[in-house]
């Protein structure tokens, strides 16, 4: 199974940032969701961030809330998500990070959850509502199962805390570019360059940036600021939402958009 370490060192030799699309597993249904993910791999995705839908996603804006509802309406749950991950891994050995809320893991049973994740081929699990202070509730079962850790840093995380977060991260740091929830934004936050710079000085752990990145030029700007990866969620989830009646068009638009971002990233050697 390809690790983050292998991937980021490959990309670093190529002087390229990773393209990391985010999807909610099962949005709008299991089969279409799988086709979407395969399309994104063909379009150049280097890592996948996949969400498991929750009833109360407090870190997510309207676009991903709606995706969660679509996925839940077709019965998505942890077992089915594991089956989904296995199918993606059969298609391509690509690192996969899950992004989800703590209660689902807690009810499933933390140890069993991480064991099942590893067996399915998951590389890491980012728990949106578990801060670094309580991270020990998951870090030891995750490490025991063989998973990497991914934690968030936000523009209001102080440097001392950044160091603590970096010290507990073995995968990559998910850097949130803005104060706020997930969602496409017209303009890229002007604090992001400074934030990435600060993190790169503090740690050797790869730094990826997400939230609000919705254009190829945003991705290029984030890469040139030194980010090791660019995470794009709401923008492409929005392409699913606006093309629910025409799946071929949906896949084509996602493919074109990710292709454009890929080109922008390739031209931006860092």
């Amino acid at each position: 199974m390809k690790t983050y370490k292998q991937l980021f060192s490959e990309l670093s030799e190529l002087k390229r940032s990773a393209l990391i699309p985010f999807f909610v597993i099962g949005d709008p249904d299991f089969e279409t969701s799988l086709r979407i993910v395969k399309t994104s791999i063909d379009a150049g995705a280097d890592v996948l961030e996949l969400g498991i839908p929750f009833s109360d996603p407090i870190a997510d804006g309207p676009t991903i809330q709606k995706a969660d509802i679509r996925a839940r309406n077709c019965g998505m749950n942890i077992q089915k998500a594991m089956e989904f991950v296995r199918k993606v891994k059969d298609y391509r050995d690509i690192p996969i990070g899950l992004l989800m809320y703590y209660n689902l893991i807690y009810q499933y049973g933390t140890e069993k959850f991480f064991k099942d994740c590893y067996q399915a081929g998951v590389n890491s699990v980012l728990v949106a509502d578990l801060s670094i202070d309580d991270a020990d509730e998951i870090t030891s079962p995750a490490a025991k199962a063989g998973l990497d850790t991914v934690f968030m840093v936000t523009p209001n995380t102080d440097p001392k805390r950044m160091k603590l977060i970096a010290s507990k991260t073995t995968g990559f740091i998910y850097t949130v570019s803005v104060l706020g929830v997930t969602g496409s934004r017209e303009k890229l936050s002007d604090t992001i360059e400074g934030l990435v710079g600060k993190l790169k000085k503090l740690t050797d752990v790869p730094v990826c940036v997400g939230f609000g990145i919705s254009k190829p030029e945003h991705a290029a700007a984030v890469a040139s600021a030194g980010a090791d990866g660019v995470i794009i969620g709401s923008k492409i989830v929005g392409l699913i939402e606006s093309n629910l009646g025409n799946k071929e068009k949906m896949l084509a638009e996602i493919s074109t958009f990710l292709g454009d971002v890929k080109v922008a990233l390739e031209h931006q050697s860092n």
Binding site: S131, D134, N156
Partner: peptide, 12 residues
């Protein structure tokens, strides 16, 4: 109890 919140809310 505790504080199970996204990182962005921790500072506040």
């Amino acid at each position: 109890g505790g504080f199970y919140v996204p990182e962005v809310l921790m500072a506040v």
